[in-house]
């Protein structure tokens, strides 16, 4: 059986028809062609698929698409506004917080959740907040710097 769903994705109302078993990440990638959200594992462990569901960082591989009916979803594609990079996006570029780029969208989405709840995180708090996101390239060193950079800018202080 197919379910009609309507999801507000990055500010735009998107309609779709999905099977019950379809995952939100597939709905984003296959139906909406929002391929910035990646799939890195099968066990909800790696965080590459992290998006915001009603404002909270969520692993879109562990949510059914039909569960997102009526919800607001933000993906990496929705982070820049009016062509202006989100401070986290800018921070990742500025501090070389990415290499292959595959984990990056998930990292940025998780970091955004962290900074929303804790605008001035310590290094320790940043590292703990990233425990659900695996990066195999950077050793996390520059990811931490990138988030610190963004935190400073978002608090109105230039890094």
């Amino acid at each position: 059986m197919k379910h009609k769903i309507s999801v507000n994705i990055n500010g735009k109302q998107c309609e779709g028809e999905v099977e019950g078993r379809e995952l939100l990440v597939n709905f984003l990638r296959e139906h909406q062609s929002l391929t910035g959200t990646h799939i890195g594992c099968d066990t909800s462990s790696c965080g590459a698929c992290t998006i915001h569901l009603n404002g909270a960082a969520t692993k879109s591989c562990t949510v059914l698409a039909v569960q997102a009916d009526g919800a607001e979803v933000t993906t990496i594609e929705g982070m820049a506004t009016n062509g202006e990079l989100h401070p986290l996006q800018a921070g990742f570029k500025e501090e070389h917080g990415l290499q292959c780029g595959f984990c990056t969208p998930g990292m940025i989405m998780t970091a955004a959740d962290l900074l929303k709840n804790n605008p001035n995180p310590s290094e320790h708090e940043i590292r703990e907040a990233l425990e659900g996101n695996i990066c195999r390239c950077t050793g996390y060193h520059n990811i931490v710097r990138s988030i610190q950079h963004a935190a400073k800018n978002m608090n109105g202080v230039t890094a």
Binding site: L34, T35, G36, T37, H38, T75, I76, E77, M79, A80, L85, Q89, F92, K93, L98, G101, F102, T104, P105, I108
Partner: peptide, 12 residues
């Protein structure tokens, strides 16, 4: 190359 990756436009 970062621009495409941080905006979700990488093409894997």
């Amino acid at each position: 190359e970062d621009k495409r990756f941080i905006t979700g436009q990488g093409k894997y």
